[in-house]
Design a protein around this nucleic acid. Structure first.
Length: 254
DNA sequence: AGATGGACCCGTACGC
DNA sequence: TGCGTACGGGTCCATC
């Protein structure tokens, strides 16, 4: 529980994660308290006294709460020390995560939060159709575009497309209203189930508590190259779509 | 407007 | 055993 924790110091060993001058960042965050934590798509937002600290943890970033004397892992890149002796440590093997600091009164209107699309659970299926029906790119690119619909990554897009019976290379402007609706409801289903099972541990992802997810056991197509489709037994194929590895049952997905 | 490819990073899984 | 290399994840950016 970090709510109401007061940050009295910050250290880092890898500056590029902090998307501003690190000294400025430290001076601004120091002595502010964490009042709330919000989430927008894949971004986590710590609401402080006057600022909003906006985190993106990419694929495997996570926060650990430890004691000040606990061993510091070489993958812990930003350490927030609290007044109560605990530390909140940002752990990121790939160093891909980002931290932005913005005024808490206006961060929603600024990059990186301002351009985000709605999440599947908040997106009206007909609105989704309106957003995509003029787009000439592959439907998979649309589903991965956080400015159109937020919250889906590569794994969950593959699963959403499978449940919808739609091929990742289908052009967005060829998607019918009925199919657009199916995509939104499938995306909700995929995310709800993945969240309930603690996410997908495919490479090295674990939760902040080091717990492995279990959704990888429920995957229908993603990573299933060469295996039979759970619906029709056709062999699942692997291909690139928009530069991203994609797994498809070409018998079920048209 | 859209597609493409590179950049960022490094543990893992390979091939030799 | 040890080395080299490809890969992938999310996002931005330059270029076509």
């Amino acid at each position: 529980m970090v709510k109401d924790a007061k940050i009295i110091d910050i250290s880092y060993d890898y500056a590029p994660i902090i998307k501003m001058d690190p000294t400025l960042f430290i001076n601004r965050v120091k002595y502010q308290s964490i009042h709330d934590i919000e989430r927008y798509g894949k971004y986590l937002v710590f609401i402080l006294d006057t600022d909003a600290m906006i985190m993106h943890m990419r694929m495997e970033g996570k926060f650990y709460i430890k004691k000040i004397n606990d061993h510091v892992s070489s993958h812990e890149h930003v350490i927030f020390s609290f007044s109560d002796g605990r530390q909140m440590r940002y752990h990121d093997v790939r160093k891909f995560g980002t931290i932005h600091l913005l005024d808490k009164n206006s961060y929603k209107n600024q990059y990186p939060i301002n351009g985000l699309g709605k999440e599947p659970k908040d997106l009206d299926p007909l609105d989704f159709y309106q957003l995509i029906h003029h787009r000439k790119t592959a439907i998979k690119n649309v589903l991965l575009n956080q400015h159109i619909i937020s919250g889906l990554g590569n794994i969950y897009v593959d699963e959403t497309l499978f449940l919808s019976g739609i091929h990742p290379k289908r052009l967005a402007n060829k998607i019918t209203k009925k199919e657009a609706s199916k995509l939104v409801t499938s995306a909700r289903e995929v995310l709800d189930k993945a969240i309930a099972l603690g996410g997908s541990t495919i490479r090295s992802y674990t939760s902040s508590l080091g717990v492995h997810g279990r959704f990888q056991n429920e995957l229908n197509v993603h990573t299933k190259f060469g295996e039979p489709c759970p619906k029709c037994q056709n062999t699942i194929v692997k291909m690139k779509v928009g530069g991203r590895t994609s797994y498809v049952c070409e018998s079920c997905q048209k």
